[in-house]
Nucleic acid binder design. Structure first.
Lengths: 136, 136
DNA sequence: TTGCGTGCAAAGGTTTTGCATGGCA
DNA sequence: TGCCATGCAAAACCTTTGCACGCAA
């Protein structure tokens, strides 16, 4: 029951944007701006609809951050297995770090054992300061 | 330069609400409903303004969750030292767990050492399923 | 030709702002 | 009386929806 997927200029440009922003989160408005820069006159509605599709396909993760109204989106790169580790995001520069290490397993085990809590990596982000921003 | 703080009926009722909801997150709309039940006719604007004050004072933390439009608020209880541990929130029932344990220190140390990441507990929440909701 | 993709306008929901009024101290 | 708190209306902002039209296959 797969839906057909037409190829359009807008989709191409959005994919282009995504490739360039794999290590930060971004908003629908930021995609819109990028499209404008590319001399595209796409309507915001279209941007949202494309984003929705990408979220459904599991290519993007949608999140809301505390102090901003707009939803933030993150690319889930296939090779880095983003569903099985949490992410660390710098609240200064927005950069995303993948917590891919043995400690991740320890952590999930601890949460389950000591807190009876089953961690959902897709939804979880730890906020703080990355190395660069801390030095400033 | 402290601002004077007048005592009003609305503030009392909101504090009452907060006391009753120290272990879950809630929205501005929920406070409004509560006030209505108490035969108060407070305007939504007032609710927002009171919440803002409480957030500024550090009594509440503001958060946004992914699938809801409205912001969620959480009480920071003074005795449980919420600034020094992260919180676990069940995405089913909204219940909050405080991660107050030795593992918390380990975690912060690991993040700093292996990822150069300085964790900000106020902004960080781990999402998942609590024991009760997992059993369903 | 089929039916997905898009534009446009309008609406929905949450939150903020400005201004005048009300009420605590 | 002085100043904070509130009500009301309007606006801002992000996002969704409906409908008609455009365009890929």
């Amino acid at each position: 029951m797969e839906q057909k997927n037409y190829k359009t200029k807008t989709k191409d440009l959005i994919n282009e944007f995504i490739l360039k922003h794999h290590d930060v989160t971004f908003t629908a408005a930021e995609i819109s701006e990028y499209l404008k820069k590319c001399d595209s006159t796409v309507n915001v509605t279209t941007v949202y609809r494309n984003i929705d599709r990408l979220v459904e396909k599991g290519i993007l993760i949608k999140r809301k951050s505390d102090n901003e109204d707009a939803a933030q989106f993150q690319v889930v790169s296939e090779d880095s297995d983003c569903e099985h580790h949490i992410h660390l995001q710098c609240s200064e520069c927005g950069k995303l770090l993948h917590m891919e290490c043995d400690f991740m397993d320890e952590m999930q085990e601890h949460l389950m054992k000591d807190h009876g809590f089953f961690l959902d990596c897709r939804q979880s982000v730890l906020k703080g300061l990355c190395e660069n921003c801390r030095k400033k």
